[in-house]
């Protein structure tokens, strides 16, 4: 465990030593802020209309603002996370530091977990900035806190899935651009895989919809923790890390 923490800290501090962390966090905050403003302005107009008796009958800030905001935030994660994970293994391979890690008394699992937690740490820091926006809502409004908490949990799990896939792809190549591009393509594929569901048979549709990574996010954004989705995300992460371990191992054999 000590080794995992040491490795995770090294990963995290290398993000912060390079411009990566500040750029990623800054632009994430910018985009999130933009979505926040757009949704807030929309919500404001709706509540104005309601007060004049023309809008919807009830207004729920959780459903009308926070849930869509989370959905938008996952889209930003889709673009940002490949840039975080693309260097994890590729960079070590390119610079030869992988020789240090693989000849140190560490297990592959420790190295992978260290990298996973390091990337998760940066992602969590990105999300932490958005707590500021939430604080504004809590200060001026009266949202329910539970859906907010589950929304963040869902964001972390969704990000964890992306990061585990990103690690796997980064472990397959020396080239960061290749790693980044492939990771993005795979993320997007996982995102939209159920779009063709309506053209497929009912069984295929159910399967595709279950595979879709964002399909499982809806309930979290609405404040529901369903074991079904929890199991999906956690097993997805574990499977991704397992494949990464296999990839690192075969890489050893191939030299």
């Amino acid at each position: 465990m000590r080794n995992v923490i040491t490795l995770a800290r090294k990963e995290l501090s290398s993000y912060f030593a390079s411009p990566i962390a500040s750029i990623v966090m800054g632009f994430y905050a910018l985009l999130f802020g933009y979505f926040f403003y757009a949704l807030l302005a929309f919500f404001e107009r709706q509540s104005m209309q309601m007060s004049m008796g023309m809008g919807p009958m009830t207004m729920n800030i959780n459903q009308m603002l926070i849930a869509p905001l989370f959905m938008n935030a996952t889209v930003i994660a889709l673009f940002v996370l490949p840039m975080i994970t693309m260097r994890t293994y590729s960079e070590e391979k390119r610079s030869g530091t992988i020789e240090l890690l693989l000849t140190a008394p560490l297990t592959d699992v420790q190295i992978i977990l260290g990298k996973f937690l390091g990337a998760m740490g940066l992602y969590a820091a990105m999300l932490a900035v958005t707590l500021l926006h939430m604080a504004v809502l809590f200060y001026y409004g009266d949202p329910e806190w539970r859906p907010v908490a589950t929304g963040y949990l869902g964001m972390l799990l969704l990000g964890g899935c992306f990061i585990s896939v990103g690690l796997l792809i980064s472990s397959l190549t020396k080239n960061q651009i290749v790693a980044g591009m492939v990771t993005f393509a795979v993320f997007l594929m996982l995102w939209v895989i159920n779009w063709i569901g309506s053209f497929a048979g009912p069984t295929a549709q159910a399967v595709l919809s279950h595979l879709s990574i964002v399909e499982h996010f809806d309930d979290f954004a609405k404040g529901v923790i369903d074991t079904n989705h929890l199991v999906y995300y956690v097993s997805f992460i574990v499977f991704g890390l397992f494949l990464t371990a296999k990839s690192v191992d075969t890489e050893r054999w191939r030299g």
Binding site: R2, N3, T6, L7, K10, S13, S14, A17, S18, S95, G96, T97, I98, E99, L100, L101, T103, A104, P105, L106
Partner: peptide, 26 residues
């Protein structure tokens, strides 16, 4: 082990780097 190319992390200072290596080497 000293590989053919020294396995250094460019972003780390020499002291941080050696501290990191000391930790992972137990």
């Amino acid at each position: 082990y000293l590989p053919e190319t020294p396995p250094l992390y460019p972003d780390m200072t020499v002291r941080d780097y050696l501290t990191f290596v000391a930790r992972i080497k137990g």
